[in-house]
């Protein structure tokens, strides 16, 4: 039914596909930044000496880590406008969904990172008379971030792949654009193979970079 593999369909629709990739990238970058900020706050809350705070943060993390991302996307896509009381566009809904969801994962990474900083460093900070906040800000977090760079990047690659799930609510990312072209031009084989290849090349380059960084940090 597909006939010959026809590459021209890719070049004819290149502009359309690139627009989709742009959406994918924007979504990824904002979700990383938002997730990182919210995740760091959550991690600090989880490690805070104040019990109720760490309990709330812990529950948040466990809640989101128990749910499939697709379900989270559906929740935010359909039901957030009810809560907010005004319309929220598809793109913004999934953006919120990704930030909230990723924050749970970033929180765990940050927590591990913070705990990887040797206790001696914290005691040294305390001995110097730094407050809890100062100690976190000047001593712990900078070191924690450095330890976490490779794993944060790995998470970024996973997130980049996960953004393809916006397919279920029709936000026009790379995959959805390709799907539209595939249906319009009746070229499923070409489009899906191309999509797989593009994702593969980007993600593989990313993971190779991460491995390189890991080796550099290990030295």
């Amino acid at each position: 039914m597909f006939g010959e593999f026809d590459t021209s369909v890719i070049f004819d629709n290149l502009h359309f596909l690139l627009e989709g990739m742009q959406t994918t990238l924007i979504l990824t970058v904002i979700a990383i930044c938002g997730g990182l900020v919210l995740g760091t706050l959550l991690a600090l809350a989880r490690l805070a000496p104040f019990k109720p705070l760490s309990f709330i943060a812990g529950s948040y993390v466990n809640f989101f880590r128990s749910m499939p991302l697709i379900l989270v996307i559906f929740w935010f896509y359909f039901l957030v406008p009810h809560i907010v009381g005004r319309p929220v566009g598809g793109f913004y809904s999934v953006l919120v969904a990704f930030v909230m969801f990723e924050a749970a994962y970033y929180c765990e990474i940050m927590r591990a990172g913070i705990q990887s900083v040797r206790k001696g460093q914290i005691y040294a900070g305390q001995a110097l008379g730094l407050t809890y906040t100062q100690n976190m800000r000047y001593v712990v977090l900078p070191q924690a971030f450095r330890n976490m760079v490779p794993i944060l990047m790995t998470q970024a690659i996973i997130l980049f792949q996960d953004t393809s799930l916006v397919y279920v609510v029709g936000v026009k990312d790379f995959l959805v654009s390709a799907d539209l072209v595939a249906n319009r031009e009746n070229r499923i084989l070409e489009m899906f193979t191309t999509v797989a290849l593009v994702y593969f090349v980007i993600c593989l380059s990313g993971s190779l970079l991460v491995r390189r960084l890991q080796r550099k940090f290990a030295q």
Partner: peptide
Amino acid sequence: VNLVPVTSQTRIALMANGTI
């Protein structure tokens, strides 16, 4: 005019919740 793509599954929900 903002164009919001909908599907047979999302259209009613999106209308009911005020998105479109």
